[in-house]
């Protein structure tokens, strides 16, 4: 899954020594020693896998093929849940809502996060203050108070409509209109761009200063430094953010749950996939169906992630090879 080869960065190709050529010849003894060491490092993870992750994971896989209402024992129904998905219009509605959301909100949020991380990386006064202020919304992003805040902004009597009223436009509640409700959630997601911004900031700090110094010695301007050092060196972090924000967007739940009061309304226009899954599992007590939905989602996310990883060969540069 990981990308072993990446094109050498133009900036580094001159300065970094090539990989030791004798790697393969040394491989066997080193491999054996490292295997033992690796498993020592992985003890907590392996314990967690066996005790906490694997059993529930397998249980949910089993449940995906059953009818399980949480109260009575599950009964095996084979592929029935998956067949039902095919003919469930709300399932497809939720998949469509989620897809739109992923395609719009992930690039938007990452662009904001990356742009501001670069601006706030260094060189201006009051960095700490700006960063904190921009990060504030992320702290609040999952709070119950968000529902009320968002109504204050996008509601019928909210700030946006008050602004429009000054222009003589009478607006409706943006949250109650099926064609705009999802956009308010995209705005909410972009509003909380602080989290990926932090990761970008951390990534920017990881870039060795020597590279910039070397480039300056070579007479490269700031734009050229950005393109030939910052961007390639940041690609693993961009990639990380892209992969995980995509996964996160596919699983997006809390904000829609809070803002629509758990319903995904109006008219299912904010019925995210996991919100529907949750409704099925915890409101309608169809945990079997919910588990099947979860595994269907896992497969889809898995494919998307695999594609990300395949494509990453062409644009992600790792310092370790």
């Amino acid at each position: 899954m990981s990308a072993p080869t990446a094109p050498p960065s133009p900036a580094l190709s001159g300065s970094s020594p090539p990989e030791p050529a004798n790697r393969t010849t040394r491989r066997t003894p080193k491999w054996r020693r490292q295997g033992r060491a690796a498993h020592v490092f992985l003890i907590p993870w392996l314990l967690g896998l066996v005790l906490i992750t694997a059993v529930p994971l397998l249980a949910s896989l089993y449940l995906a093929f059953t009818d399980y209402n949480l109260l009575d024992p599950p009964t095996w129904t084979g592929l029935e849940n998956f067949r039902r998905m095919g003919e469930d219009p709300r399932f497809w509605a939720s998949a469509w809502v989620t897809l739109k959301y992923v395609l719009v909100s992930v690039p938007l949020q990452l662009a904001f996060a990356l742009g501001l991380a670069i601006v706030l990386d260094r060189g201006i006064k009051g960095l700490a203050l700006y960063r904190s202020v921009y990060y504030l919304p992320s702290l609040l992003g999952a709070s119950v108070a968000i529902a009320i805040l968002w109504r204050q902004l996008f509601g019928h009597d909210g700030l946006i409509n008050s602004g429009l009223a000054l222009l003589g436009i009478e607006g409706e509640s943006w949250l109650q209109n099926p064609s705009t409700a999802l956009s308010t959630l995209v705005v909410l997601n972009v509003w909380t761009f602080g989290s990926p911004m932090i990761i970008f900031l951390a990534g920017l700090r990881q870039i060795p200063e020597e590279l910039y110094e070397a480039a300056r010695v070579d007479g490269a301007g700031r734009w050229r430094q950005f393109l030939s050092i910052t961007v390639p060196m940041l690609t693993p972090i961009i990639f990380f953010n892209l992969v995980l924000q995509t996964i996160g967007a596919f699983q997006s739940f809390t904000q829609a749950h809070i803002i629509s009061g758990g319903r995904g309304g109006p008219l299912d226009s904010t019925l995210f996939y996991t919100l529907y899954l949750y409704q099925q599992g915890f409101v309608s007590f169809n945990m079997g169906y919910a588990s099947a939905m979860a595994w269907a989602l896992l497969v889809v996310i898995g494919i998307v992630t695999a594609i990300h990883f395949l494509l990453s060969k062409y644009w992600v540069f790792y310092g370790d090879n």
């Binding site: 899954m1 993870w45 896998l49 906490i52 992750t53 059993v55 529930p56 994971l57 249980a59 949910s60 449940l63 949480l70 995980l244 996964i247 699983q251 739940f253 996991t274 899954l277 949750y278 599992g281 915890f282 945990m287 919910a290 588990s291 979860a294 595994w295 989602l297 896992l298 996310i301 898995g302 992630t305």
Partner: peptide, 17 residues
């Protein structure tokens, strides 16, 4: 496996856990 465990929505893991 690590990645897969990020991909499964937590709601279906809640009850077994």
């Amino acid at each position: 496996i690590t990645l897969a465990s990020v991909m499964l929505p937590m709601h279906v893991l809640v009850v077994p856990q």
